[in-house]
């Protein structure tokens, strides 16, 4: 299948590479479907591109690339939305993909929202932007930080903008 994007032109994607956000994202509650795109020359950055709005795209980074010891503290409600067991936190990179949305404002250093990561259940591609109130993480964590070369997940695509 194909969809149109403002920044990457027409992108080919598979239905099972779509992340489904049952609750949307704060500020974009009506946007339920996103595709993660990677460009090999700017790894480990991942673009989160809306399937329905060609102009809506987020720059994200895997949380491990920002904070190697990053810990999830998902609420029971978010675990339910992801269809994950409520009695334990999922493992980043194995059960879930965990991306921090980056804000790059003109004239200011970029920041990443570690307080509210985008968490994707790799088994069913259901996703939430999980607000982890008690985590102590900042919604404006300053970047850059030393990244680690790391595969976000085994299906990362090479080349021009391609879905994960």
């Amino acid at each position: 299948m194909r969809f149109e994007t403002r920044h990457f032109g027409i992108v080919e994607y598979e239905r099972d590479s779509v992340f489904e956000f049952p609750a949307g994202l704060p500020g974009f509650e009506d946007q339920r479907e996103f595709v993660a795109l990677q460009q090999s020359h700017i790894r480990p950055i991942v673009f989160l591109q809306s399937l329905r709005r060609p102009d809506l795209c987020f720059i994200t980074l895997p949380v491990q690339a920002i904070e190697p010891g990053y810990r999830l503290s998902l609420s029971a409600e978010d675990l339910r939305l992801l269809e994950l067991p409520e009695d334990r936190q999922p493992e980043i990179g194995k059960q879930v993909l965990c991306l921090a949305i980056v804000a790059v404002a003109e004239g200011q250093p970029p920041t990443a929202n570690l307080l509210a990561p985008v968490v994707v259940n790799l088994a069913n591609r259901r996703a939430v932007q999980a607000i982890m109130s008690d985590s102590g993480y900042s919604h404006r964590h300053p970047l850059p930080v030393p990244p680690r070369e790391e595969n976000v997940c085994s299906s990362c695509a090479e080349g021009s903008a391609r879905p994960l």
């Binding site: 460009q39 720059i59 949305i101 980056v102």
Partner: peptide
């Protein structure tokens, strides 16, 4: 909750500046 409001503001700001050029700059910084 206040964190939802902060995240909403942060998302709106992030969506406004998310271009491949900005991403390339960020990658360079990293």
């Amino acid at each position: 909750r206040a964190e939802v409001k902060l995240t909403r503001q942060q998302n709106l700001e992030a969506a406004g500046g998310a271009t491949p050029e900005k991403a390339a700059e960020l990658a360079e910084r990293l």
